[in-house]
Each structure stands twice: as structure tokens, then as C-alpha cells.
Amino acid sequence: MLNLNLLRKELHEQRWVLILGIIIFSAVGIFCAWSFKMFQHYGAMLTDISSPLIADELQRILADYNYYLWSQWQPKNLLQFGTILALVLAAPAVAGELSRGSMDYLLSRPLSRTSILLTKATAGALILSAIIWSATLVTLAAASLIGPALWWGRFLAATALVNAGLLCVYGIGLLFSTFCADSIKAGVSAGGLLLALSGCGIFPATRFLSPFWHAKGSAYMGGGSFPWVSLILLLGASLGFVLLAARVFNQQEY
């Protein structure tokens, strides 16, 4: 199903996204690991917080380096910047071929459309995952030099959740890339849908619809058990969106 020739080309084409992604995400991660003392200093000044829930959360972040590092890295910077990165990778996957006029060339090669889409999806997923894991490992390495003993196991498991969440975002971006004639439209449309889904995460009744709520794994890092259901849901949704994108790509006439 995968075409290695096309996979090599896709990885080669995205090599600068990979290199810059690792550098930028690692820099952000190192800052998160280093900024604990600064955060404690300024956080201690925040005495006038009316919400007891937020006050408790802040207290916990200020008191525990591991909890602080997780709260700043996985659900915040990695997930938020990772969402943008996933859309930057997914939106041009198909729409970019159309806008630069290379779609006819690609579709007239002896390859099935399913193979083209799955190969592109694999390349995007590999690059996205490589950036997530490289930057997380750099962050944890920096944190282990700076702070106290780390919850390595929990951090790595939480990274798997974020990775699955961002693959789901990538799948949504890829689906929109198959409908839209240009990458910007595809990225903005997918971003709109993701914004609506993230809104679902606010309300207890609808939060299971939000990939971001599942990807955060807050309860797990708060001491709970690993959310296998969330992980399976996110991976299933990612696969579902990619297969749906392949179906649309097969039916579209470009």
C-alpha cells in the first residue's frame, strides 16, 4: 500500500519542517524546564485568586516541579504549537499538489490514489511524531539536569497521548486537504472545526468529543490511571479521518 519512492520524496520535501520543528519545539521545551524558579517567584505574588479551583491548581504547580513541567509542556506548548504544526503538515498534502499544478503529474504515475494518500499520511505522521518525541526527550533531558527526579514513565506515557491527539488533528487537516483547492483554505477550515471541537472540551457532557481533552490526560498526570480509552479513541479517530480522506481522494475529480 505504501510507496517507498513517494515516501522518500515526501520526507525529503519536508526535511526543513522536521529540522526547524525539532529546534523550535526543543527550545520551547528547554525554556519550560528552566523557568520553574521564575514561575515560582511570580506565581507567589498571585494571592488574589477568586476561583478556589484555579488557586488549588496554581498551588500544586508551584509546589511540584514534575507537575509544573507537565502542565507547561504537554497540554500547553506541545499540544497548542503541535496543533499548528499538524495543520501545517496536513493542509498542503493534497491541496498543495493542486495549487502548484503537480497533481496531474502525480496522478498519472502508476500508483493508486489510496497508495498516494496513505504514503503522504505516513510521511506526515512520521515527521509530526519525530518532532514531538525528539523535543520531549530534549525537554526531559534538560529537566533532569535542572530539577529533581522526574516521573519519566508518566511523562513518556503522556507524550503518547499528545502524539495520538496530534495525529487526530493531522487526520482532520488531511481530510480538508482533499476537498480544498489550496492549502490555506484547507488549514483554516480544519482549524475552524478543531476550534469547535475544542469548545466541546469545556462542558462535561460534550468533552468526549474534544481530541484536546483526551490528549491532555490531566487526570493521569494528577495521579490517576492511564486513559487507555482516550488513547484508543484518538488513534481510532486518526485512522478514521485518514481512511475517510482516502475515500474522498479516490472520488474527487481534479
Binding site: 520524496k9 502548484r100 499544478g101 503537480s102 496531474d104 503529474y105 498519472s108 504515475r109 502508476p110 493508486s112
Partner: peptide, 20 residues
């Protein structure tokens, strides 16, 4: 379709490839 494309050469009206 796929097997046949291995036996066909195609030149389009506006040849567009990967500029990079």
C-alpha cells in the same frame, strides 16, 4: 489502470513538477 500507466508516457499541456 495502474498497470497500464506503466506502459504509457504522458506529456501534459502545462508540465508542472516539484519546483524545489
Amino acid at each position: 489502470s495502474i498497470a497500464l500507466r506503466r506502459r504509457i508516457g504522458y506529456v501534459s499541456e502545462q508540465a508542472s513538477f516539484y519546483p524545489w
